[in-house]
Amino acid sequence: MSEPLKIKTMADCMAAGETPEILFWVGCAGSFDDRAKKITKAIVRILNHVDMSFAVLGTEEGCTGDPAKRAGNEFLFQMQAFQNIQVLNGYEVKKIVTGCPHCFNTLKNEYPDLGGNYEVIHHTQLIQQLIDTGKLKVEGGAFKGKKITYHDACYLGRANDEYEAPRSVIEKLDVELAEMKRSRANGLCCGAGGAQMFKEAEEGDKEVNIERAEEALELSPNVVATACPFCNTMMTDGVKLKEQEENVKVYDVAELIANANDL
């Protein structure tokens, strides 16, 4: 953790005449939310560790429009998409890794029809590829033998059928991977999707994140693993409300890998 992070922007690369292999799309949460910034840095530490040539857009990145689209504001979504596609196509971006399943889904599925065609992967998929190709060696470190449960992000799981990458990465840590009752295709949402993150929930008996945190806590895990900054916030809040934050930590899969290997 001591080494300073090496991060270039696409503008830097262009000025130096370099073409990075992959663009790291940080996302709004990863850029501005204090908790999510740690996930962003964990991803960068992994990329630095394997010497991957990557760049970020920096201040040229803008919201993909996902929350606007899910909330019904198609105009705003398409305006955001149009602007982002102009920037991405301007840099001739071919491949993107995202730190957030919502950005991942939008860039991968909804941008092509608007003129933005890129190969888009989620950071858990990239980590899995790095491990599979031997570029990243993973050891359990502090997590060895610990019980970890993985909470499926809707926009990675059901929305894009990616259930295995995060799980196979976690298993590499030599841990006990415990499954919640509702997992994979049957996983329960954390409550943040569809722009719920930005508003109070409608009247009901319970908050969705409490329901989900209770389900996770039933397993008495050491760690609840997530793959989405919004799930991370919701699960962290849920665990706190159940006063279990001393015993149960909520980490992104990227943080697990970076922390276990002292990157």
Partner: peptide, 11 residues
């Protein structure tokens, strides 16, 4: 407005 667009229903 209560929908989280999580796709549990379609699944």
């Amino acid at each position: 407005w209560a929908c989280t667009t999580c796709n549990a229903c379609t699944e």
